[in-house]
């Protein structure tokens, strides 16, 4: 089984400070998105069961070679890195055109995996857009994938129920973080990752024209305001009354 996993380089959330309700991204290291790591983990499991091959796709405007090493250490076999200044702050549309062109470039794949959303913007659109561009079936909220002969048995986790689908490849899925816990790569795997092939191409080299450009303008991203009321409550009875009032569905 030939599997492509789209992984987005994102700022390390644990190292972001907030200033004036905006994230300070200077000097924050770039890492792989948490849910994308889970997508890679299920890909590695399927690869091991089917003697498959995994290609990681990554698109961005920065230096991607270092970031992708984590994915190559965690079990991917090779990488296609799409690096272009136009991808700076790209919306879902441009990212999807870039990744779809990447998939075409690497040749036929049976399975195209995404995290359910990236840990920075979490728009959750890219998988659907890519599958539409490529004209292949799609499923979101996937929490398990099992290969049975020529068929993929996919479990989707919906709000009140689970849906089990039988899908014939090729198909694109976005997965939930609980699908698998990402492995910790061994030292040997980390050191061997530097020898795995990683091809770098620009949008022009992939034939992604300027017409595929951004259609969304992000006006502002602000952290929610939080504050403490600092109320003094004189008695236990009053505290119970206030808590009841403040509780969700208040006053019950």
């Amino acid at each position: 089984m030939r599997i492509a996993v789209a992984m987005k380089p994102v700022p390390d959330l644990l190292q972001i400070r907030m200033k004036d309700r905006r994230p300070v991204l200077e000097d924050v290291p770039v890492v792989l998105g948490a849910i994308d790591r889970s997508a890679l983990e299920i890909a590695v499991e399927l690869k091991e069961k089917t003697s498959g091959h995994i290609v990681v796709l990554m698109a961005g405007d920065g230096r991607l070679e270092d970031t992708v090493k984590e994915a190559l250490a965690a079990g991917a076999d090779e990488a296609l890195l799409i690096r272009d200044a136009r991808l700076n702050g790209a919306d879902g549309s441009l990212s999807a055109h870039a990744l779809a062109a990447g998939v075409r470039k690497i040749g036929p794949v049976d399975l195209l995996l995404f995290g359910e959303g990236s840990t920075d913007n979490y728009s959750g659109q890219v998988m659907s857009r890519v599958s539409e561009i490529l004209g292949i079936p799609q499923a979101g909220y996937v929490r398990d994938i099992v290969v049975e002969g020529e068929t993929l048995i996919v479990t989707r986790s919906l709000e009140d129920e689970e849906e089990i689908l039988e899908i014939r490849p090729p198909a694109a899925f976005s997965v939930l973080s609980e699908i698998r816990e990402p492995r910790i790569p061994s030292v040997t795997a980390i050191l061997k990752a530097r020898k795995k092939p990683a091809t770098v191409l620009s949008l022009d080299e992939l034939g992604v024209g300027t017409g595929s450009g951004a259609g969304v303008e992000t006006v502002s991203t602000l952290a929610p305001m939080t504050g403490r009321k600092g109320e003094r409550i004189p008695s236990l009875e009053e505290l119970v009354r206030v808590l009841r009032k403040e509780a969700p569905g208040g006053g019950a």
């Binding site: 090493k69 984590e70 250490a73 910790i184 061994s186 030292v187 980390i190």
Partner: peptide, 18 residues
């Protein structure tokens, strides 16, 4: 180096989790 960071991270993750 990135490899050194990854090895440091792998040891840290294992130590904290396991």
């Amino acid at each position: 180096t990135k490899e050194e960071q990854l090895i440091q991270g792998a040891a840290r993750e294992f130590a904290e989790k396991e």
